[in-house]
Simulated scan of single mutants.
Amino acid sequence: MKTTPASWSRGRLIAVIAAGLVLLILIGVGVYGLITGPRPAGDPNPAPAPTVTEPGESETGRPGPPRVMPSNDPDEFARNVAEVLFAWDTGSGLMPLDYSAAILEVGDPSGHEQAGLASDIAGYLPTREAWIELRKYATTQHLTIESSFVPEAWGQAVEQAQPGQLPAGATAVTIEGTRHREGVWNGEPVTSEHSVSFTVFLACPPPAPEFRSGLCHVLRLSQLDNPLR
């Protein structure tokens, strides 16, 4: 790191520190990928494309997980995504990848953010090994949403972005709620509750054929319990 010249004013130093903190925040919640944009053409190490099944049908042919209801309203769409993201049933015969598919189906239609989004979703779902263990206890989960809002830090993120770096209609909605889990232990029903918070980064572009007639789509998700404020 370069030594700060003594001639720099206190105000300039504070501005540099503030800019650095904003960058750290962006990296921490996963929106940094949106600011930097997609990988350039010809990248020798492109991120692998996720392999998923179509929502509504699992790999076993059984009924699939709930679909995300489409919307052109950012807050409503973010809530729809959040509810489906947390809604799973280990006794359904489905696996975590089946539930991932339901979110990826409403992901970035350009495909630029799909690999990153798949990685984000994996952080919210049990691993395959954990899923098999939870299945022994007939574990199910759902989310009760208590609040949703556009975080103030999103305005800072937009200010940091260069023209054209964010997709058309991009925004962020932070969700706060309670995760509910239910299962069976030694033949008795058991439940648990845990407060959660996270940010859904999405875009609701103007109507156009390439943007699914103006419907919103998911770009990325923050780390669980590390939302943008």
Rank of each mutant, 00 (worst) to 15 (best):
V52M: 00
A115H: 06
M95R: 13
A78M: 04
T174F: 04
G37D: 09
E152D: 14
L143R: 05
G155H: 13
A49P: 01
E176Y: 04
D73Q: 12
C216S: 10
G61C: 07
K136D: 12
S222E: 03
V16P: 00
E182M: 10
I175L: 10
P46E: 00
A168F: 02
L143I: 05
V184N: 12
S100V: 07
F201C: 03
P55L: 12
N80T: 02
I25G: 13
A101E: 06
P126Q: 06
P46M: 00
A208I: 01
V173Q: 15
H194W: 01
E176Q: 13
A168Q: 14
W88H: 12
K2I: 12
S148F: 00
D73M: 04
G30K: 08
V158K: 14
H112S: 14
A41L: 02
L24F: 12
H112C: 05
G61Y: 05
A87D: 10
A115C: 05
W88F: 15
G20D: 05
G116Y: 10
G64H: 04
A203T: 02
S7M: 09
P70K: 02
G93C: 04
L166G: 07
G37V: 08
L125A: 06
P96Y: 10
S110I: 00
G61P: 02
E83D: 08
R181A: 09
P44D: 07
Q165F: 10
L221K: 13
A47E: 14
P227K: 07
P205N: 03
M69V: 09
N45W: 05
D89R: 15
E59Y: 05
N45D: 08
P109F: 11
F77R: 01
P65W: 00
G169I: 08
S58M: 03
P44L: 09
T171Q: 11
V52F: 00
R128A: 07
N226I: 07
E76L: 01
N45Q: 09
V196H: 07
A118S: 14
T174P: 04
L224S: 02
S110D: 02
V106C: 13
R220C: 13
E57L: 14
G123D: 11
G37H: 12
T174G: 06
L134T: 01
G20K: 07
Q223F: 10
L166V: 08
A138W: 00
L215F: 13
V184D: 09
V81P: 03
T199A: 09
L26C: 10
G116F: 09
A118K: 02
L228M: 13
A49L: 14
R179D: 11
A49S: 15
S195T: 14
I132M: 06
V200F: 09
E129D: 13
G11N: 08
E57A: 14
A6D: 06
P65D: 02
A18H: 01
T144C: 00
V150E: 04
A208F: 00
G93N: 06
K136A: 15
A168T: 10
D89T: 12
P48R: 07
E146K: 11
K2S: 11
I17S: 00
F198Q: 11
G183L: 13
A82R: 11
P189A: 03
A101K: 04
R135K: 15
V16E: 14
I145N: 02
